[in-house]
Simulated assay, not measured.
Amino acid sequence: MKRNSMDRVIDTIEWLAAIFVGIVALNIFVAVILRKFFDTSIPDAYDFGSLLLGILIFWGIAATSYRGTHITVDLLWTAGSKRTKRWIDIFATLVLLFVVVVQTYTLFDKVLVTWRDNVLTYDLHLPTWPFFAVAWLGDVAAVLLIAIRTWRLIFQPELIEDHPEQHTSE
């Protein structure tokens, strides 16, 4: 199957989310090893961990939103016809798009406030706004992917994978 530019954007965003998972895991692993075996710690390890976890959450929202692999309640969806299922998916995705757009707007305000107030980490006194900005970019990526999903649900439903619950073997 030929990959178009939208598919490459989706894949790139999902890879970035995976990289942030690795960075968070590495930070935790190194911090634990240093504490346990060398009786020392990474300066600002707690701040970095918290900030990286925030980044991971927002990029995770981006990664799960397009695939529809986030937590869902599908009681009505499973009982519906194929057409009803499609309309439920479109409605749910539009609601999700609205919520994430509002969230992205408010998070941008947090980036600006953190930058203006010159909020710094505890030990190294590094500015925290770049971490908030990377998290905000994850939210922007989520808006982009949800918009692509909405477009495809409405105009190109054949490009959307089947609902994840259809593939479970219970």
Rank of each mutant, 00 (worst) to 15 (best):
N4W: 15
S5K: 15
W129F: 15
F91P: 02
S41H: 01
D74E: 04
R83I: 00
A63T: 08
D123W: 01
H125R: 12
W87N: 09
Y105L: 11
V119K: 14
R116V: 13
F37R: 13
F108D: 15
I28A: 11
V111G: 14
P43I: 06
T150M: 04
L144Y: 14
K110W: 02
V119P: 09
T84R: 02
R149K: 01
R86E: 03
N118R: 11
T72W: 00
T106D: 13
K82N: 01
I148K: 03
F132V: 11
I57K: 01
F132E: 10
I71L: 10
A142F: 07
I23A: 03
F38H: 10
L107I: 12
A31D: 11
V30L: 13
L76D: 06
R86Q: 09
W15G: 11
E161T: 06
V111N: 14
W77Y: 12
S41E: 02
H163Y: 11
Q166C: 04
L34N: 06
T114Y: 12
T78I: 10
G68V: 05
G68W: 04
L145K: 14
S5P: 00
L51E: 12
A62M: 12
R86V: 00
P157T: 01
I146G: 09
E161V: 03
L52W: 07
T69L: 05
W59E: 03
V102G: 01
V99A: 09
V21N: 11
T72K: 09
L53N: 11
I23L: 07
K85V: 00
N27A: 06
D47L: 07
V143Q: 14
I160V: 02
T64C: 15
L26M: 05
R116T: 13
D7W: 05
N4K: 10
D47V: 04
D89L: 02
Q103E: 12
T93Q: 05
I19E: 00
G22W: 02
T168N: 10
